[in-house]
């Protein structure tokens, strides 16, 4: 199951993570079933590494990010951060760890309190974690604002006075205020216009490198993910389908779902090959996922054996490249255009 061959101790180690949500129904709103939003997710993240997490809606990527920070409680599995198991930690201990793990949210309009001045938006975490004196904090906030490309006098203004891109810069400054080692960036540029998106991606990339941050970069835009990530993980219906170094995943995808995702991404180049691998149908209901490989109901290459439990296993097929697919013959055939 484990694919980790690194000698260096990973900063974050997630094993068999599961998050189930009850589905309530009937007159008494009793649980009538369960949805496994995240099912058996395992991966490692090194210090200073960017792992892209891609998937479509319902893939569980956002739930995974939030469970890892324990913003929602995982129902099973282990999360080790900097050598410490954090799944069982009490509130006070967790708060100490949380200083080192932060999140940047998707919607810069919803994630900033409209009644707080920017100074308080960013300063709140400093106060909670008891960092610096009052005067210190002001300087720190000014420095943070400049670091994310805003002027220091932005601190006395309210979020509504800023554009979407500027708000996302404020969100990044807030996450960086407590000097974390690890950031979950949950669709941080999806709500922004294309011209502004590039500014924010560049900023995140620069800061990540400068500060040596480990980042879990969650997104559905495959091109942005490749651009920023060292490694990429692909999720579908709560499960990990494929995980590999970026170049390997984009140039030699092994999972039919990854291939379909890559071929569906629209390319503005009119000369780009339009050999589309169109998937049939929709993602099945997560309440009743297919047995075996969860992708098999839409997979053009599915075999009867794909319905067996063994078809779920993630196998390493190249160094650092693991895939949950029993068909080794698909990728070579696709590559030669057969």
């Amino acid at each position: 199951m484990s694919t980790d061959t690194v000698t260096e101790q990973p900063l974050l180690s997630v094993r068999n993570l599961e998050k189930r949500f009850p589905v309530r129904g009937g007159l008494l709103q009793r649980p009538v079933g369960w949805v496994k939003a995240v099912d058996d997710l395992s991966f490692d993240l090194k210090r200073g590494e960017v792992l892209g997490l891609v998937g479509e809606s319902g893939s569980g990527k956002t739930t995974a990010g939030r469970s890892i920070l324990r913003l929602i409680e995982p129902t099973a599995g282990s999360i080790r951060f900097a050598g410490q198991e954090i799944t069982g930690l009490a509130t006070a201990e967790m708060r100490a760890q949380r200083r080192r793990m932060q999140i940047v949210f998707q919607d810069p309009y919803a994630s900033l309190d409209p009644r707080q001045r920017v100074r308080d938006v960013i300063g709140e975490a400093l106060v909670i974690h008891n960092i610096g004196s009052r005067a210190d904090r002001r300087d720190r906030i000014a420095a943070l604002l400049e670091k994310v490309g805003l002027s220091a006098d932005a601190m006395d203004r309210f979020p509504h006075e800023f554009s979407g891109g500027q708000r996302q810069r404020i969100g990044i400054a807030r996450a960086l205020a407590v000097e974390p080692d690890f950031i979950v960036a949950d669709e941080p540029v999806s709500a922004l216009d294309v011209s502004v998106q590039a500014q924010v991606v560049n900023l995140l990339g620069d800061l990540q490198r400068e500060l040596g941050l480990a980042v879990l970069f969650i997104a559905h835009d495959l091109a942005v993910v490749r651009y920023i990530s060292d490694r990429v993980a692909v999720m579908y219906l709560g499960r990990l389908m494929e995980i590999a170094p970026s170049d390997s995943l984009y140039e030699r995808p092994r999972h039919p779902y990854t291939m379909a995702l890559l071929s569906a991404a629209p390319d503005p180049d009119p000369d780009a090959p339009k050999s589309r691998m169109l998937l049939d149908g929709d993602v099945p209901s997560p309440m009743n996922p297919p047995s075996g490989c969860v992708f098999r109901t839409r997979c053009p290459f599915a075999l009867p054996a794909c319905a067996e439990p063994e078809a779920r296993a993630l196998r390493e097929v190249a160094p650092g490249h693991s895939v949950a697919c029993i068909r080794d013959d698909v990728a070579p055939a696709m590559a030669t255009g057969a």
Partner: peptide, 17 residues
């Protein structure tokens, strides 16, 4: 400023903005 699928960050590379 749209990254395309084949584009890597590489060392010090930046997206046009």
């Amino acid at each position: 400023c749209m990254p395309h699928l084949g584009q890597r960050r590489g060392d010090g590379g930046r997206l046009y903005a």
